[in-house]
Simulated assay, not measured.
Amino acid sequence: MKISVDNLKKSFGDRCIWSDIDLTFTSDEIVTIAGKSGQGKTTFLRCLNGLETYDAGTVAFDGEVMPVGTTDAKKIGMVFQGYYLFPKMTVWENILLAPLYHGIDRKEAEERAERLMKELEIYEEKDKYPKNLSGGQQQRVAIVRACMLEPEILCFDEPTSALDSETIDKLAQTMGRLKEKGMGMIVVTHDRAFAERISDRILHFEEGRLREEIVA
């Protein structure tokens, strides 16, 4: 799968956050978006996911231009910085919500959930509520939930911000396994060491412009 971004521009009021953004993402790579706070990194990620509108340009999935403010949840997924797990639902209920909403057969959804949860070592927590999980466990639940529709590219917003070094290491391993299974990733992070460890490419937003470096 390929995401093509052409001449994208985003403003808040009279302030232009970024403009003339031309990029291509594919489902065989991990791309990191870096830069100082206020550069519009998370906003860019939300535009790709249809959670934010933009002023000009296009976002296309495999050549199909998506209307502004829309996306295809079966092609691109999102793991939010705050995870956004529903507190009154168990882990199992949180994970099954999206596939059942999108009309996936319950038995198929449950089998997919069990497989993914076991792969990410979270299955034993399936009957717990989010408040009873550690930050790392909540993140793995959020990753499983985002993978339930089997997107080809998965976005992460600041995935290491609340994790200790051991959990960050496990996250990097998880991302590596997802890539091996054919899932591309777009990651917003302030953690330079983490970016260098996981990325094929690193993009920098600076004063409304973009520069790119290839990771050796």
Rank of each mutant, 00 (worst) to 15 (best):
K2V: 13
N7R: 11
N7E: 13
K10M: 04
C16Q: 14
W18F: 15
D20V: 03
L23N: 03
T24D: 15
S27L: 01
E29S: 06
E29F: 00
K36T: 09
Q39C: 10
G40C: 10
T42H: 08
T42F: 07
F44G: 01
N49A: 09
L51Q: 07
A56Q: 15
D62L: 06
K74V: 08
M78R: 00
V79E: 02
V79G: 01
F80N: 04
L85Y: 09
P87W: 08
K88R: 13
T90M: 04
A98H: 07
H102Q: 12
G103Q: 06
G103I: 04
I104H: 07
I104F: 05
E108P: 01
E108V: 14
A109N: 07
E110P: 02
A113N: 00
E114I: 07
M117K: 01
M117V: 02
E119N: 14
I122H: 03
I122P: 00
E124H: 15
E124Q: 14
K131F: 11
L133I: 06
G136H: 08
Q139N: 05
M148S: 10
P151K: 02
C155R: 02
C155V: 13
F156K: 01
D157T: 05
E158H: 11
E158V: 05
P159A: 06
T160I: 06
A162K: 10
E166I: 10
T167I: 14
G176Y: 05
L178H: 11
M183L: 11
G184E: 03
V187L: 05
V187N: 03
V188G: 04
A193V: 11
E196W: 03
R201S: 09
F205K: 03
G208P: 04
R211A: 08
E212R: 06
E212G: 11
E213Y: 08
I214P: 00
I214T: 15
V215H: 09
